[in-house]
Simulated assay, not measured.
Amino acid sequence: MFVAPPGYQPIYNPRIPYLGPIYGGLRDGSSIYLQGSTPENMTRFFINLLCGEAESSDVALHFNPRFDGWDKVVFNTRQNNSWDSEDKVRSMPFSKGRAFEMVIMITSHGYQVKVDGKDFHTFQHRLPVERVRAMHIAGDVSIQTINVIGVSPESPTCDFVMGGQPVYNPPVPYSNMIPGGMFPKRTIIVRGMVSHGANGLSINFKVSRSRDIAFHMNPRVKQGIVVRNSMIGGRWGQEDRQLSTNPFREGQYFDVSLIRRISRCF
């Protein structure tokens, strides 16, 4: 039986302030996925990627949204207990009292931050990302999910994370059972790239021992839409096409996080 290493196990509803290790460290191709919310009276919070497992360790990335009348997000690093020069972005991707999804993608250039599917800022590396060993989160924020992807020393990227168990470079079309099935807050993360000339792709959650599809996600690249649907008894339901943006484009990488939020349907 395969047992996923600790670094692939999602962390649900951690107590804030949170301080925890990143098993295996980070490298080019790794990603950190966070799902959370901010209170109505939010003033600021921070996410630090630490070069050790103590709060006093060097900080390779300091991400610090501040609602202080001059709303901004501050990026920085800390070495030998001394902060470096701040990189200020005078824009605020968070709203008070609202939920958010955030991805920190590690590239050869820096930390590429996306909030709610939109590129926000890339903070260039000042300290080697290989030094990162832990994450520290504190301030006015609640976190529901933390998931670190692509931390295996054997493989720098993880193409498919299912319930904490990574699957590398699966053949397409790919079909497999979901161990333990789906349950509230279970997260499946798919990372891939849309081929040049692609018309579309699909991700289906099928009901065991039947042909029913509980969830059908069908990005149609040429049309610029993402269709969601279900099929019961051989009949498709009404399509849901409402999305403000289409994140799937030819020749571009994507990260899809599928989170079961309710306890009915499948």
Results as ranks from 00 to 15, higher is better:
Pro5Tyr: 01
Tyr8Met: 05
Ile11Ala: 04
Ile11Arg: 01
Arg15Ala: 12
Gly20Glu: 12
Gln35Gly: 10
Ser37Val: 03
Phe46Val: 01
Ala60Cys: 14
Arg66Trp: 02
Phe67Met: 11
Asp68Val: 10
Gly69Pro: 00
Val74Arg: 08
Glu86Phe: 09
Arg90Lys: 10
Phe94Leu: 11
Gly97Asn: 12
Gly97Pro: 14
Phe100Thr: 10
Phe100Ala: 13
Phe100Pro: 08
Ile106Ala: 02
His109Pro: 00
Gly110Arg: 14
Tyr111Thr: 05
Gln112Gly: 05
Asp119Tyr: 15
Phe120Pro: 00
His121Leu: 05
Thr122Gly: 09
Pro128Ala: 11
Gln144Met: 13
Ile146Ala: 05
Val148Cys: 04
Pro156Phe: 02
Gly164Thr: 09
Asn169His: 12
Asn169Thr: 10
Pro171Val: 12
Ile178Thr: 05
Gly180His: 12
Met182Ile: 00
Ile189Leu: 04
Val190Leu: 07
Ser195Ile: 03
Gly197Gln: 07
Ala198Cys: 01
Asn204Arg: 06
Arg209Lys: 15
Met217Phe: 15
Asn218Trp: 03
Pro219His: 11
Gln238Ser: 13
Arg241Tyr: 02
Gln242Leu: 14
Thr245His: 15
Gly251Ala: 00
Gln252Val: 02
Phe254Lys: 01
Val256Met: 15
Ile259Pro: 02
Arg261Asp: 15
Ile262Arg: 13
Arg264Gln: 13
